[in-house]
Design a binder for these strands. Structure first.
Length: 1125
RNA sequence: GGGCGAUUAGCACAGGGGUAGCGCGCUUCCUUCACACGGAAGAGGUCACUGGUUCAAAUCCAGUAUCGCCCACCA
């Protein structure tokens, strides 16, 4: 029954562990989606990486973010799919291949289209393989069986289908317009592929002579070579200076061509001379003017950027060489007036890295306006998609509003060849602008159409150009799920849940998808768009291929492990999607921040090792959950912290606060669990066979298992490894598919309560007065292991307990303590009971009054009216609206929370100690089944109702169930214990007492409550601060000369010592005093301000009063001590 | 030209009305039976600046400065 003692090695080895689970998860289809799977569909399609080489840190970052979301949603029971894949990246891969060819001294035309595409396929296979390998090493929980590539058969079908449909609908057209021409790749590129760069250039001023010889006009330009294509000079029609020029002609230098002076609004009279040269074929503005004024369009450029025959004597020269020569010539001709230094922006091709040329050519375009209109309607009317952070909505919207038609044809070979076939037999065997064409989903269908239109002899030639990569990417969210077929995947997982991507491709990709999806599927392709920042390098530069500062994630994975790298990236992304910086030493390939995460992983590993070593080989299921009644103060504290963490983690992930969630887990695991709870239970774990040991084991196991689940999405491999070892699942089970801890399920089972399960520790037993000695250990171990089923799925029935006379006596003796604990634990219930009882009393009294009143004529009716009015008003103000109800309940709960712990504490420790003759253990037993036998009618009525859903419903929110376990009172009490331990340790350090040396401590507090808390936590103080002799006392009698003191709350911590240096003591006291006095100044300053007292919320004012009182008390203690020295 | 973000400890960053935090680094102590990839105790900040709102501002508002990023057809 008890599993063999599992063990873990003393240092976590990520390499072996990660590979093991990656293989198992995949081979066991843990991440394989099934449309039939129950649960809400939750699908993320991967932003497909380009097959341009390998993944960089930005991809790792994005993958980590998505994987957290996906794993979380899988664990909360959603029907989850993460669909992987890659993008063919038409122009990027094309450029790479051309570069390779260039190195071989060839061009693509030398090898031909087929061989070029073969090379491309080889490249894709290689790069795609590398990427998939990297993704596997990252441990992404994708469904590999659904992997897609933008050029695979299904997606190509989708592309053709989309193209044909849009063409039929008039949303795709072919035409001769000005496009951005990239001379490097010799292709058109879209507006998005153009990057404007500020460059230091020149502004050259020329004079153009008027044809009639009556003078000159002065024009200025940054691109003199374009003057060869000038077909007009323009002025503003309202410009007084040039009215007489309009309509005249000019003799263009060099070409001697006669061109008109035209008037156009576009000209800014303020800029330069107010005269502009117009080159309609090489400037977007001039193009517009050319159309308006019906000017000739003279193209002076070849596709490679050299000048064509229209460049006259400069024909054949490169555009930049031509610029120099034109300038020389103009200067020689006396036309150059001046040269100014001028900073201006020049459009560069994103891929080609050379200035683009505005050029007129025949291309395919998507008419964006109707698409954008529809998409905008989704945004404005349905707030869809929902951007996180919200500020990106505006960026996205503005772009949609100012959208221009999208040029989708590229003069490249790698990509989806445009499904248009030209009837070249109609135009002498060549493709011309006027060649008729058919658009079809495949060659066969094209041929049929063509025969119908042009007869059986028609000769067809498919458009050699390919489509913009983003055309196919725009279909990605639905084409990958099977569109245009109506597949089960499509109907289940579409629209997808969340798109996770960087802000840099909102225009490129996000908007294209919403445009396409709106049109083809009638809905937005994702509900949320989670925009993350970019990964920057150690010099705060964006990591990119071109800057050559990318870091291969595998280097850091090899060094620190995937979990560490992922965790580093995630925890950096707190808040609103800022860029993240990754510390990295390029010389040593080390990263201090990833190292910190590695250390954290190791910490979790070792904490788990510790827990495993102390469970006597039992699994959490075998141990079962601890019974409430058996919990000690530390157990209740960690359980409260844990349940708080559950709630917090879930709500943070739900709100995309992944960084916050990861930090919260870090603090809990390292701080609460390792630094405190484990240290606190160590002594108990050594008490073989005791109830206290068992409860510690149960709590450790319960909290560790829950924490592993909570943490799994962030560090999947290490948590899976530990979880498997911890739970020893018999059948094939994976943490990756376990249910995520839930606030609603976190009730502990109320079971039989053995009436005494006190703890004894060596130090406690050895304690001198005035500490109450611990009771002898119980001879009974509770919760015998009789329920093998998982407590989470099947809460065990309460055990039948043999209720003997000894128990009865004992129970009677402890009754006051039980009542106290009862109050403490059942605040909510109690509150309602109180309200109810008060209500009854009130009713009875009211009834009496009313019956009296009713005897007086009329008075009864008036009071009835008043009462009705007040009730209605109350109901309206407090109960009608959810928010109000919530607020009212919260305030009630808060007040109760403030009052009840005080009540309960007054009833627990000291009182009980008196009642029992000082025989009190630091255990906090609470009411259980047996209490009924102890003549407690109230408990009889109420115990079965503890934390039942009815009560939760009454309160109106699930969290009431949850708040029953998250116990602010316990946490606050424990805080005092922790602070006292810190203070004692601090005193040790101040006095240079060796850590091993036991000491005597006197804790003095005038507050009974503080003394109670400290008494309850006395063993903790002794264990964790190495206190051999501890006294807790209301007053310090007599004079203790040689004492070093500290203050926490209003507790005076005294450490008697001999041979102390008075000066050292004084320094310390003065330091503490200064702090206290500063606090006093701050608080009293505020409290003396009547505005503060009157206007600040009562809680804040009270807080200030409390702080002031505490600080004054501290100062008093400190001054007193100083005086005595 | 328009817009967005940032400015907090030596470094890198959280926090967003109630008097400031994590990590790395630093100082001192500790190899105690989970972990030295560790433990304990510390030091260190006029929250860029100037005004305003408020009982109260690192936090909200306005402006300034510096840095960064988008968008835009001014030759």
């Amino acid at each position: 029954m008890i599993a063999t003692a599992p063990s873990l090695s003393s240092q976590y080895n990520p390499e072996v562990t990660e590979a093991k689970w990656q293989d198992l998860w995949e081979s066991k289809d843990v991440f394989k989606a099934d449309p039939q799977h129950p649960g809400k569909p939750y699908c993320i399609v991967i932003p497909p990486p380009n097959v341009t080489g390998s993944l960089h840190m930005g991809h790792a970052f994005e993958a980590a973010l998505i994987d957290v979301l996906i794993r979380y949603h899988r664990m909360i029971g959603d029907n989850t799919l993460w669909l992987p894949g890659t993008d063919h990246a038409s122009i990027a891969v094309h450029s790479i291949l051309e570069k390779q060819l260039q190195e071989e001294g060839k061009t693509r035309y030398d090898i031909g289209r087929d061989e070029f595409l073969e090379r491309a396929q080889r490249w894709k296979a290689e790069s795609g393989g590398r990427i998939v390998h990297q993704q596997r090493r990252l441990g992404v929980s994708v469904d590999w069986t659904r992997e897609r590539f933008t050029m695979d058969e299904g997606l190509s079908t989708a592309v053709n289908k989309a193209f044909v449909q849009m063409h039929t609908e008039g949303l795709i057209y072919r035409g001769n317009y000005m496009v951005n021409w990239c001379p490097a790749s010799q292709s058109a590129v879209s507006d998005q592929e153009v990057e404007n760069k500020e460059v230091d250039g020149h502004l050259w001023h020329f004079r153009y002579p008027l044809s009639d010889g009556s003078g000159f006009v002065e024009v200025a330009t940054t691109r003199p070579e374009t003057m060869l294509g000038d077909t007009a000079v323009a002025v503003n029609p309202k410009d007084e200076r040039y009215q007489d020029l309009i309509g005249k002609t000019i003799k263009l230098p060099i070409t001697e061509r006669e061109i008109p002076v035209i008037a156009d609004e576009l000209v800014d009279p303020e800029f330069g001379t107010g005269c502009v040269k117009v080159t309609p074929a090489h400037d977007p503005n001039d193009f517009a003017m050319g159309q308006r004024h019906d000017l000739p369009f003279i193209n002076i450029l070849n596709k490679d950027g050299s000048l064509n025959e229209n460049g006259e004597i400069f024909a054949g020269l490169d555009r930049f060489e031509a610029r120099k020569r034109v300038l020389q010539r103009l200067e020689a001709d006396g036309c150059l007036i001046k040269t100014e230094a001028y900073r201006h922006s020049v459009p560069y091709s994103d891929r080609g890295k050379v200035p683009v040329e505005p050029l007129i050519s025949t291309q395919w375009f998507v008419k964006t306006e109707p698409l954008a209109k529809r998409t905008l309607a989704f945004l404005d009317e349905q707030q869809s998609p929902d951007f996180i952070p919200e500020r990106w909505t505006k960026v996205y919207r503005d772009w949609l509003v100012n959208l221009r038609d999208w040029c989708i044809s590229r003069q490249l070979w790698w990509g989806h060849q445009i499904p248009a076939w030209y009837a070249i037999s109609e135009t002498e065997g060549e493709i011309r602008e006027d060649t008729p064409f058919v658009v079809a989903e495949n060659a066969e269908s094209a041929h049929q159409q063509a025969i119908e239109r042009f007869g059986p002899e028609v000769q067809l030639h498919q458009d050699p150009d390919v489509l913009d990569t983003w055309f196919s990417s725009g279909l990605w969210p639905f084409s990958t799920l099977g569109w245009p077929e109506e597949t089960a995947d499509l109907s289940t997982y579409y629209p997808t849940a969340t798109l996770v991507t960087g802000f840099d491709i909102i225009f490129f990709w996000v908007a294209r998808m919403t445009l396409m999806a709106g049109h083809f599927t009638g809905e937005m392709p994702f509900k949320d768009v989670y925009i993350h920042g970019l990964v920057r390098d150690e010099n705060n530069k964006k990591m990119s291929k071109s800057s050559n500062n990318g870091i291969d994630p595998l280097i850091l994975i090899d060094k620190y492990g995937t979990d560490a790298l992922r965790y580093t990236l995630i925890r950096e992304v707190a808040g609103a999607g800022q860029d993240i910086r990754l510390e990295y030493d390029r010389k040593t390939d080390e990263s201090t921040s990833v190292e910190a995460s590695r250390n954290f992983a190791n910490k979790l590993w070792n904490a788990s090792r510790f827990v495993l070593m102390n469970l006597n080989g039992q699994t959490p299921a075998q141990l079962r959950q601890p019974a409430i009644a058996d919990l000690e103060l530390a157990d209740r504290w960690i359980l409260s912290r844990y349940h708080r963490l559950v709630q917090q983690t879930r709500s943070q992930i739900d709100a995309y606060g992944l960084g916050e969630a990861s930090k919260g887990l870090y603090e809990f695991i390292w701080g609460d669990f390792c630094d405190w709870y484990i240290e606190l239970v160590k002594p108990r774990l050594r008490q073989e066979g005791t109830a206290s040991q068992r409860v510690a084991q149960q709590t450790l196991a319960y909290v560790l298992e829950g924490t592993l689940k909570l943490f799994h999405p962030f560090m999947p491999h290490i948590t899976e490894e530990i979880w498997q070892t911890l739970t020893q699942p018999a059948s094939e089970q994976y943490l990756a598919s376990q249910p995520y801890p839930e606030a609603a399920h976190i009730q502990l089972v109320t079971e039989t309560v053995p009436l005494s399960s006190p703890v004894i520790t060596d130090s406690a037993a050895a304690n001198p007065e005035p500490i109450a000695p611990a009771a002898p250990p119980t001879d009974e171990v509770p919760n015998a292991d009789t329920h093998p089923e998982s407590p989470e799925t099947a809460p065990p029935e309460p055990e039948i307990h043999d209720f003997g006379w000894r128990d009865a006596l004992h129970a009677f003796g402890e009754l006051p303590a039980y009542i106290g604990r009862f109050f403490d634990l059942n605040q909510t219930v109690l509150l309602w009971v109180s309200v109810f009882i008060l209500g009854l009393v009130g009713l009875a009294a009211t009834a009496a009054v009313l019956s009296t009143i009713n005897r007086v004529p009329l008075l009864g009716s008036i009071f009835e009216l008043i009462g009705l009015g007040y009730s209605l008003n109350f109901a309206y103000r407090r109960l009608l609206w959810y928010e109000d109800r919530q607020a009212w309940m919260e305030s009630l709960q808060k007040q109760t929370a403030e009052i009840l712990p005080l009540l309960s504490n007054a009833n627990t420790l000291d009182t009980t100690a008196q009642a029992m003759g000082g025989d009190l253990a630091p255990v906090l037993p609470i009411v259980g089944e047996e209490t009924r036998g102890a003549e407690d009618d109230m408990a009889d009525d109420l115990t079965p109702n503890i934390h039942t859903p009815e009560i939760a419903t009454d309160i109106g929110t699930k969290s009431s169930e949850f708040t029953a376990w998250v116990d602010p009172g316990i946490e606050e009490q424990f805080e005092l214990v922790i602070e006292t331990i810190r203070t004692i340790r601090n005193l040790r350090a101040e006095a240079s007492i060796k850590p091993k040396q036991p000491i005597t401590i006197i804790l003095q507090s005038g507050s009974e409550r503080e003394r109670q808390i400290l008494t309850a936590g006395q063993t903790y103080l002794q264990d964790l601060a190495r206190v051999e002799s501890l006294s807790i006392t209301p007053t310090v009698d007599g004079e203790i000369q040689q004492t070093i003191i500290g203050v926490v709350g209003t507790v005076q911590v005294l450490l008697p010592l001999s041979g102390l240096d008075i000066e050292v003591l004084k320094t310390k006291l003065n330091k503490d005093l200064k702090k206290a006095e500063a606090e006093i100044r701050s608080c009293s300053g505020r409290l003396n301000n009547s505005n503060f007292v009157n206007q600040a919320p009562p809680a804040v004012v009270q807080g200030a009063r409390d702080t002031l009182a505490e600080a004054e008390k501290q100062a008093e203690i400190l001054r007193d001590r100083l005086e005595r020295l």
